[in-house]
């Protein structure tokens, strides 16, 4: 799948933003006044900024408001509802903290739950797609939720939780890569099932000499040697370096800032790979994915 920068930015930033809102909602920490304002400003910048970035990949954004209609069937619609509900509830939780120093705990709990639900609905947009076997696995929601919570723990300064969650994220990421490499073969779609022709089927000619929306959007093929290098880079920045910093050094602001930055860039690289490595079955009609079927 084509790794659109707007969607990668969205899923990285809003994931961390909603993760921070989860910890703030739970009262870990429960700051007041200007400290609270700063915390919530960071969370809202990431969460809402990410959502705004996501609208940049819409080709017809004037109809974006209609996406609230089909929550009964569509995960994307549910994401829109969950995001607005989470941001609204957390705003009502944040206002008394900032202005009066009062914490309305139940509102915070509800906001934390809605923030988690937002990340879950985002992950289900991808996990529901049978057409992209690498995404169509239970580890996809686990990946998004653990990444969000790890980012939130880091941003909120919960060192213990951050250490544990980053380690968990690392384990889930490794599993998602390992399982993802096998998913296309497991799903069982081949050039033969795509055409139902009897014998060994290979593409002889594409329908048109030029590219098209489908080949650019869904038949994105990444060089294997680069994929391995990028996985190492993603893992080092997202998991290894933040863990070393948190465990080995006394956590001061500077160390924490480096850990957060490294983690977020690492998540960004991991999300780039999440898209770039994802194989859509329509590629079978365009002569792609032969190596995946053999694997």
């Amino acid at each position: 799948m084509h790794p659109a920068p707007s969607v990668i930015l969205f899923s990285t930033l809003s994931g961390a933003g909603f993760g921070l809102l989860v910890f703030l909602g739970l009262g870990l920490p429960a700051p007041t006044s200007w400290v609270a304002f700063t915390f919530f400003a960071i969370a809202y910048t990431f969460a809402a900024g990410g959502l705004l970035a996501a609208t940049f990949h819409l080709q017809n954004p004037k109809n974006a408001w209609k996406s609230y209609r089909e929550w009964r069937s569509s995960w994307l619609s549910r994401e829109a509802w969950a995001a607005v509900a989470a941001l609204l509830v957390m705003a009502f939780y944040a206002a008394p903290l900032v202005l009066a120093g009062t914490r309305v705990a139940p509102l915070g709990w509800l906001g934390a739950l809605l923030s988690l639900a937002t990340v879950f609905t985002t992950s289900m947009i991808y996990a529901q797609l049978k057409t992209v076997p690498r995404w169509n696995q239970p580890a996809t929601p686990a990946l998004f939720l653990s990444a969000s919570l790890a980012g939130g723990a880091l941003l909120s300064g919960n060192v213990g939780a951050a250490t544990a969650l980053i380690a968990l994220l690392g384990a889930i990421t490794l599993f998602h890569w390992w399982k993802g490499d096998r998913r296309f073969g497991e799903a069982g779609s081949t050039a033969e099932t795509a055409t139902r022709l009897r014998g060994k089927v290979s593409l002889w000619e594409r329908p048109h000499t030029g590219e098209n929306y489908l080949t650019r959007e869904m038949v994105f093929v990444i060089a294997r040697k680069h994929a391995v290098k990028l996985r190492i880079i993603a893992f080092a920045l997202m998991v290894a370096l933040p863990l070393v910093l948190l465990l080995a050094l006394p956590v001061k602001h500077m160390v924490a800032a480096i850990a957060v930055l490294s983690h977020l860039v690492g998540v960004g690289v991991q999300r780039w790979l999440f898209f770039a490595e994802a194989e859509h079955v329509v590629g079978l009609y365009y002569g792609a994915h032969r190596a995946n079927i053999a694997a």
Binding site: N60, P61, N63, L76, Y213, V281, Y286
Partner: peptide, 17 residues
Amino acid sequence: EDACMGCGLCAWACPYG
């Protein structure tokens, strides 16, 4: 087309292109 926002998710969901 009057309601489509051009997110492309339906094209992702279609196995046949």
